[in-house]
Design a protein around this nucleic acid. Sequence first.
DNA 1: CGACGGCATGCCATCGATGGCAAAGACCCG
DNA 2: CGGGTCTTTGCCATCGATGGCATGCCGTCG
Lengths: 330, 330
Amino acid sequence: MNGRSILRDVAEAAGVSLRTASRVLNDDHRVAVETRRRVQEAMLELQFQPDAMARSLRAGTDATIGLIVESVADPFFSALIEAVETAATTAGLSVLVASTHRDSAAERRIVDRMLQRRVAGLLIAPTGDDHSWLARTSTSVVFVDRGADGPETDLVGIDDHGAAATAVSHLLSHGHRQIGYVGDTPAIATSRARLAGYRDALAGHGVSVSSQLIRSDCATVASAASATAALLDLADPPTAILSAATRCSLGVVPTLHAQGRTDIALVGFGDFAMADTLRPAVTVIDHSAAEVGRAAAARLLARIADPALAAEHIQLPVRLIERGSGEQRP
Amino acid sequence: MNGRSILRDVAEAAGVSLRTASRVLNDDHRVAVETRRRVQEAMLELQFQPDAMARSLRAGTDATIGLIVESVADPFFSALIEAVETAATTAGLSVLVASTHRDSAAERRIVDRMLQRRVAGLLIAPTGDDHSWLARTSTSVVFVDRGADGPETDLVGIDDHGAAATAVSHLLSHGHRQIGYVGDTPAIATSRARLAGYRDALAGHGVSVSSQLIRSDCATVASAASATAALLDLADPPTAILSAATRCSLGVVPTLHAQGRTDIALVGFGDFAMADTLRPAVTVIDHSAAEVGRAAAARLLARIADPALAAEHIQLPVRLIERGSGEQRP
DNA sequence: CGACGGCATGCCATCGATGGCAAAGACCCG
DNA sequence: CGGGTCTTTGCCATCGATGGCATGCCGTCG
């Protein structure tokens, strides 16, 4: 039916040059009132829509930010995405999402593809440790949730070490000494920090750390479930458990319920649906994904506006929500 | 440090024309072996990455699909997004996401923006009823979850009417006659179909429908919670409830638990975390978001490949997962 | 030895918009 | 009335890659 109309058509219809039509489109003030009116009329008439590709090519950058996470479906990341998307839309930018599924080769491919698209900026919760591509691009990048160890790039996340330590101290103060740890692999910076927080809190209270109680190999709900079952089977089982990721909690909690061992104290990292409806309701460390997303997006927008900004590590506060499970005594 | 290199640089470095370098880039067979080698060497040397914008401009379409949903953070949609993203990535396409938050003006803006970007295709779970823009574009569009009432466009979703009827029949067969309905607004086609399925199943079994038992105004978790409380307060309260959306279940279930009324039979639309850990575990109709996403993406890719395809409505099967809550008798 | 076919390569235009510069017209002032 | 300034408008080149057509070179065959 309609071939879409281009700016040239508008210009011809209005009897002006392409350049003048372009000026009207961009609200350039140096256009006579009458001319502007004619051009605008023609634009409406022809239902003109500017071509974003052409603009991007000319501008050298695309009005889009790339968001790379581990999994789009993960509750933490999906909440984060929503916050980022809201901020981006407000700023007139679109959002490209992609999941790495912890495959660092896939991550590299995704990063390359986004850079080829000349995204205005990149938000990334990295999987791999190889961030050498950073040196090869001038695109604005902000790490989110976890990231480069070095201080040369922006990072927006939470105080994982402190949060884990807080959780452990909470359990210690309720009389626990045998505290199990169910968490994700230390290959992920975030998990590493949480495990360190766990260890340091125990050590700080003079409690010895038993490696039997530490299961830091739970990348999936299923592995967290079986790790929990294994902890319960120990000769000297834990009286409390720190679940160091929401994903882990989704395995730990059902296992405790299935085995009728809800007497075991539990603090989970990350809030989740129904956490306060279960009996006992689950005490969690809430690290608001939306807050992290908002802050990361704000930081990225600032960096896009001024690429010369000094790198910064932003840590958002977390809060312990006492609901019952974490306040049980041995 | 490095300004990125462009194809012209590669051509110069290899001592060939731009056109030849372009041929190598596109695996055109009409290039001498030796020349190809030189050009490829130059590409590696200069770390050449083709500019996606320029290609898109030339091609007239962008290697991207747009995905427009109500909320990126909604569990149903986030699972759907992940499936779509996986399929798209496999096909070499990127994914732009956006949330409408049920604002049809926002939806229009988002659609316009995506069309301006010349996305290769659009997947949309529409909020508004005005799909007149469809006529004005030649972009491939597939509706997902809900959509145009007419048969002129593709729609991938589930049999909402049948699924709701199944759930109601299930409750009826367990002796319930007072069945409450907590669902979203009938303004959404999906909700409308579910409510109709509820009514038709009741009518089909000769049970009269009481409008007091129907709360179809629950767009949020909080409103579902208060609607549930109101149902319980009725002079003639329901002995069973059909929660017609996952979001609603997240309000219904905590309310039943908080009021100690877990004796009320419940069937929920959409599975959710911890549904089988709660006591009683929650019987649900599982409509796999991932399945819907996969099918919708496959359909869109097919349509992009062949825009002349006849429109089709695809309904994916659902299954009733009996866990206990829906099998309780009055 | 000349004509012709096929392969490899190159030049130019093009996608749609915008930046730089110049020109044309209006207007003012001396 | 001429020269200068300001406003409005237009032409051309450009962003980076690819399509169409032309050209040059080689071999082959009559």
